[in-house]
Design a protein around this nucleic acid. Sequence first.
DNA 1: GTGTCTCTAGACAGA
Length: 971
Amino acid sequence: MADPSNAALRSGLNNRYRVLEVRVVRGEGRDPEKHLAVSSDPSLGDTELCVLQNGWESVPVVPGDIVHLEGDCSSGTWVINEQSGYLILYPDLLLSGTTISSSIRCMRKAVLSERFRGSECGSRQTLVGTILHEIFQQSVTNNLSPEKVEELAKKIVYGQKYLKEMYHLKLKQTEIMQEIEEYLPSFFKWTEDFVRNPANQNKMQLKLPSENKTGDCSSTVEIVDILDIEENIWSPRFGLKGKIDVTARVKIHRQGGIQSRIMPLELKSGKESNSVEHRSQVILYTLLNLERRVDPEAGFLLYLKTGTMYPVTGTRMDRRELIKLRNQVAFYLMHSTYKSAVGRQQSQLAALPPLIDDSQACKYCSQIHNCFLYSRAVEERMASVSFPPALIPIIEKETQHLKPSHLEYFSLWYLMLTLEMQSGDSKKGYKNIWMIPSLEREKAGDCVGNMIRVDQVQEVSEGQYLHSFQPKNGAVPGANLLVGDRVVVSGEENGLLGLATGYVREISATKISCLLGRNLSKLPESTTFRLDHEEGDCSIGVPFENLSKLMKDSPVSEKLRNLIIDFHKPRFIQHLSSVLPPEAKEAVASILKGLNKPQKQAMKQVLLSRDYTLIVGMPGTGKTTTICALVRILSACGFSVLLTSFTHTAVDNILLKLAKFKVGFLRLGRAQKVHPDIRKFTEEEICRSKSIKSVTDLEELYNSQPVVATACMGINHPIFVQKQFDFCIVDEASQISQPICLGPLFCSKRFVLVGDHQQLPPLVQNSEARDLGMSESLFKRLEQNQNAVVQLTVQYRMNSKIMSLSNKLVYEGKLECGSEKVSNATANLPNLKMLKLEFADASKTWLKEVLEPDKPVCFLNTEKVPAPEHTEKGGVCNVTEAKLVFFLTTLFIKAGCRPSDIGIISPYRHQLKVITDLMARLKENRVEVNTIDKYQGRDKSIIIVSFVRNSNDENGLMKVSTNVTFYDGED
DNA sequence: GTGTCTCTAGACAGA
């Protein structure tokens, strides 16, 4: 939960204290207080006292927590009370203004929204709101005349930017335009009142908290300048983040004179409510402003429908209550699991904030499904939780479609996902950006710091700005960032965190160019920047969302629940003739001709399936070829196909093959991540080249191809809301965790999983989650239904001797060679004879054996060399073994093997680094060195495995195997 | 025991 290391503790402005002890103090006739023993000293010496009074004692702080303290500390004592000071719990967890203001009404919803991000699926009003924001922001920045504003509105509505969302919501551009038009008159009125002619209109009461004058003082407010729009501020001081619609310089005219301030202006396009939620948002933005400028003390709330603007002053009391609210939300987010005090210390899911009984709020709540689901699956059994009586029958009704097995599946996976998310927390997250100086992080390889902006900022497309950065001194450190990586751009100076996000477009020795979501050209030229590799936790959103979807009361979800949770037997039809259209017969027959027996069997099985098929692709059995043939056959039969895999690379491998045949497909996903030869099939490229500008055009594009391909995390694309596919094929399925693999299955009638659970399972970091079964893939789970399984057993990668190793160890003799040629293949080492003469020496006979092509598998025991392992900070390595690997590599090259035909793999990254450094000495450094994970599914003539481990307890081994590929080779 | 990895826009739109 909390970071156990104390390295991050510090005093000063952005202080971080560890809470060592919490004591509740009750004096006679006095309100209770909480006394905390805290320390900002990494060795936890030097304790200070923090006294919480006047309501602050309710902060749910426990020993071990990290807190930030604001206020005064005199002689080692902090006092946080009504008048002064703030305590921020888990300050490195930044919560957004909207999260906190929404928690005023229902904290449960605020917490659920942080987990289930995609549940807010948008509506007409929200889309109109977003577009209006943009029109307003651009108009005021450029001070546009009414005619120009009309023009701008048309440009935005009839442009490309919001097409996807309109398609998603099935809205027409004309409808949106009509609605926008209705807002324009009040918008012009506002401009007249506050920007062009402020002196004699709209008297507005504005009393700043710092003024102690009593009585009303009428004042007028004039907006002098728009300094920024969509300003993004992260505040690790208050544990807050947010985007401020408009940052304005205002002049306050009052009797006493004129004051100038920089204030946040929040736009609302809905009903003019001036509600607590809206006002709170503004108050939180005034706090955010403290990161970058003097306290604005107030901000504005502007309702675009009427053009009415309200001033919002943030009093100490308001700020205090909002911070306390933030602390509570943070508490719930950080304490989503707990360990039971009794028994075996197993983690359990904790209760969420209590359900509220407010039919008005629940009516429009986007989290209602998750709210009821969690209460039913998790909280119902907790003695400590009771539901509002009126809600009990409603919860019952809304979840009655779920069986106990379903609720159990949900709560188990929810727990495992939460645990996995927690174990990533300490490494990931944004906090390293403010907790670790760029120089230090640069060494770790996740950051490039001390850069200045060069060249003009170019607007490449709507909302995408190309920026170039150059290190102030020296060159760009190699390999810290890669093209396509997501980055966060911050100022090196305090307060300029998270200025913009985007991704790397190009890297050279002297320059890094990035596409960013905001234009940073207004910042002073002297600003120095740091670019941090974004390692956010957005990945965790998709599986939670899929899990929630699986529990929905819909036919698709019900079918999947039956198949996946309750193991209903997959059904098959009897005869091919009923699925195979006569006109497709010829085409199908000719595709089948190129396949071997088990591959043909796989095609047949898929065509006959009504639910699902599992294809076991043992090593070298032509998985890609099989999938490619399957897609061709399915589309020849007139079926639509959704083709996915865990990685972009795997998707593109199939598409590269498919592109050679006349099968059309649409590739979704960011073009940067897609193989260059496939980019022309991406939505992004097609939209650009065909200049798609209307919802109809877009819809046509989406419907134009029967085959759609994407990485399986990319299922939040609007196309999947509207379209249902006949078949979904998931490659690499044995490596994908269940809740992620589920995603694409929701949008198809039948599915095919391709994988091999004998190869690598899904990666799980958290050991408790792993023990609970998180590394079981959907492929493995469903494999027990043998009638749905087809095995590809004919392989073309290994000769008979290498194959027999696989067969004996893993595949129970099922693998067979595709041909005599495969079976007898040996490594081609033309210079071997010459080389052997050098080994006439008897002590080197082992080398002869290693190099001998007729002995393709060779284990070398390094125990007596000796070659002990080393454990370092970065992991385990074995230098002697690395040298040996290098030596063998040079020998194979001398013997005539091409460097690109040699692959070196190891389970340990650290070892790879040692080996890579040695390989740098080679003239032609084309030997590939990679982890086992990254190598899976590839072929090389010679593979050298470095097992590394060699300690006293276990013997380390090194294996050298030689193999030759004729089929499916990528080299 | 000392590890392996991919994907991802996301804070805010309104009721």
